[in-house]
Simulated assay, not measured.
Amino acid sequence: MEHFLNSLPKAELHMHLEGSLEPELMFELARRNNIELPYDTVDQIRAAYNFGNLQDFLDLYYQGAAVLQTEQDFYDLTWAYLKQCETQNVIHTEPFFDPQTHTARGIDIGTVIRGIDQALQHGREQLGISSRLILCFLRHLSEDDAALTLEQALPYRQHFVAVGLDSSEAGHPPAKFQRVFDKARSLGLLTVAHAGEEGPPEYIWQALDLLQVARIDHGVRASEDPALIERLVREQTPLTVCPLSNVRLRVFDKMSDHNVLELLQQGLRITINSDDPAYFGGYMGENFLALHQGLSLTRAQAIQLSRNAFDSAFVSDDEKAALQARLDNFVAHYRK
């Protein structure tokens, strides 16, 4: 099953590039940029990853991001992630990035976007991995700050297809960002938002009705609201679920408690993703394998989850058909 899940053609729709910063690369970039880390070894960093909640994780996440300074740094970060995709047959990815994490440190937004975009271009050319980029706003900051970030990003509009909403969910409802999302949509950008992870089902309703999102990131607490489940099934709004992340951040105590396959069984358009793979114990392959080990994920379910992701990607109908054809070909010829 491990070989099958690793070989399965996959798309990832919920992954924060800053959250793919492995300890080894963190040390390398810190040395390159003469930044002193509060850790002496890779093992010490990995030990620090034993956090107990979302805020503890975010504190570490922003500390790690401080080593990202130059266009080359952002290229190297993105390229390292794409090489992980290559080993696990992730053939399409739509990564998030958090410009405010960097502009607040005096890093020009163009430095961030150019470095990421060049790596994504090389990923398409050299690895055959298609991609779309999503700019996320930090919800613990103000809407005015988000609006300024959008304005700063507009010279690079051709490099990203959507805006999202991430960071601390509790106490920061989607309604807080309605105007900046209206502005983004008026510019032709798609919208997504984290909702229903640590926040209540009401946040999912707000994301749908006020931000008019095309996808809900996480969304697992939708199960607490039968009317919301009914709507998500009826409208086939994708949920980009991150199993290892949910367990690591105590949304669920253990993988066997996770509701992801129940939601799939109810008819929701569920996709599987890695969220912040360097911090949460694995990339796409590890997330699929964890579902097999903890919830007895079957091959048929894994295929459906992958198909859902291709259906939910921000690409043209022709590109979706090509991605689905690769999945169909794999299913028809897989023999091991």
Rank of each mutant, 00 (worst) to 15 (best):
F181K: 12
Q69T: 00
R269P: 04
A207W: 06
K254F: 05
E230K: 14
L228M: 13
F4C: 04
Q206V: 09
E198D: 15
Y49W: 08
S274T: 05
E36T: 12
L138E: 14
V247A: 14
T70P: 05
L289F: 08
Q69C: 12
G128F: 15
A290F: 01
K336Q: 06
P226Y: 07
A48M: 05
G164H: 06
A147M: 14
L327Q: 05
D144I: 00
P23A: 03
S20R: 01
R326Q: 15
Y75R: 00
I134K: 08
L263C: 11
E2L: 07
L8G: 05
A80S: 10
I229V: 15
L323F: 07
R46Y: 01
Q121S: 08
Q293K: 15
L190R: 14
V241L: 15
Y49P: 07
F51D: 05
L289D: 05
C85S: 09
A222F: 10
G110L: 03
Y75V: 00
A11W: 00
N308K: 15
P38G: 02
N308F: 13
A313P: 11
A278M: 07
G171A: 07
T191N: 02
F137C: 02
A170R: 15
G282A: 03
G110I: 04
G106A: 11
L135I: 04
R221E: 11
S20N: 09
F4M: 09
Y61E: 00
F96A: 03
D145C: 13
S186V: 09
A227L: 10
T111E: 01
M1C: 08
Q88L: 10
R124Q: 13
F330D: 01
H292L: 12
C242N: 14
P201W: 01
P9S: 06
F4W: 00
D311Y: 13
Q100F: 04
E197W: 10
G281L: 11
A309E: 15
H122P: 03
H102G: 06
G110D: 02
P9M: 08
L228N: 09
P200R: 08
V315W: 07
E198I: 14
E224T: 02
I109N: 03
T191S: 12
L135S: 07
F96L: 04
L135Q: 04
H140P: 03
Q84L: 01
E18C: 03
A332T: 02
P38N: 09
R248G: 01
K183G: 01
H194N: 10
Y62A: 06
G64H: 14
H16Q: 07
Q206I: 05
V233I: 15
L187F: 03
D276K: 03
P95K: 03
A195G: 12
L82G: 11
D56W: 01
Y62N: 00
R215E: 04
L17F: 00
H172W: 07
S130V: 01
G128Q: 14
N53V: 02
G19W: 00
A147N: 11
Q55V: 13
